[in-house]
Write a protein that binds this DNA or RNA. Structure first.
Lengths: 111, 111
DNA sequence: TATTATTACCTAAGATTCTTATGTATGTTT
DNA sequence: AAACATACATAAGAATCTTAGGTAATAATA
């Protein structure tokens, strides 16, 4: 993902949010989109991505449709109704995380 | 830390930043300060904290002084000169992480 | 035309960071 | 007397990642 430890734990949030925005995406496309959106600073490793996609699917958050494009298989993932609810939670948790980190890193002086 | 996966990876950043601000702190004090600053939403587990402190120390980022207060031992941690440099990096990495997550979660429309 | 790069999927071993559970010991409150 | 708070610690297992491989098709390049 990056040599930066902070990214640990945020991959599922990223996947879910991108799928919420795009409707459907395939794995390789996700890696490229993340690279684009972060000007090359972030690199989703395939060894992390595919197991994550499979887990999200097995949990009922994602569904898959395989499609053959130019003789190559693409597996398009999209949110299930359950996934639509979950991504709302995830966005709330990200917001809370960001606020808490800000509060610790940059505490309001109390006086 | 929380039932929220996103916190994974951010404990060392939190410890280093608190020590930068406070000068010196002991382990238990860190758990209480984090709870305070986040209105109880964040809970640094001792099973994560103490090994982290020991690792940061073994890496040369922290130094320790034991002190006996009311017949109980406190181990006060503080940044080494190396740690002072490292915490600057960590703050930069947190900033980059936040910006990247924002870029993914809330992309600027390009048109 | 042979090689490399890109696209597209996958898994397994090991590293890292956490949670859960447990332990020790003192002081304070109920 | 029991429970809670303070203060340290470790060990087993879970979760998430990196690294390192593998397959296979198409495109670009030497």
């Amino acid at each position: 993902m990056s040599n930066n430890k902070l990214y640990r734990g945020s991959l599922t949030t990223i996947i879910m949010r991108l799928l919420e925005q795009e409707g459907k995406m395939y794995g390789y496309e996700i890696t490229q989109r993340v690279k684009e959106l972060t000007n090359g600073t972030m690199d989703v490793k395939e060894g992390a991505l595919y197991p994550s996609l499979h887990k999200l699917q097995s949990e009922g958050h994602l569904k898959v449709e395989a499609e053959k494009v130019e003789n190559r298989i693409r597996k398009y993932y999209s949110l299930t109704p359950q996934g639509e609810k979950e991504v709302v939670n995830m966005m709330q948790e990200l917001k809370e995380y960001m606020e808490n980190m800000q509060a610790i890193i940059n505490p309001k002086l109390s006086f």
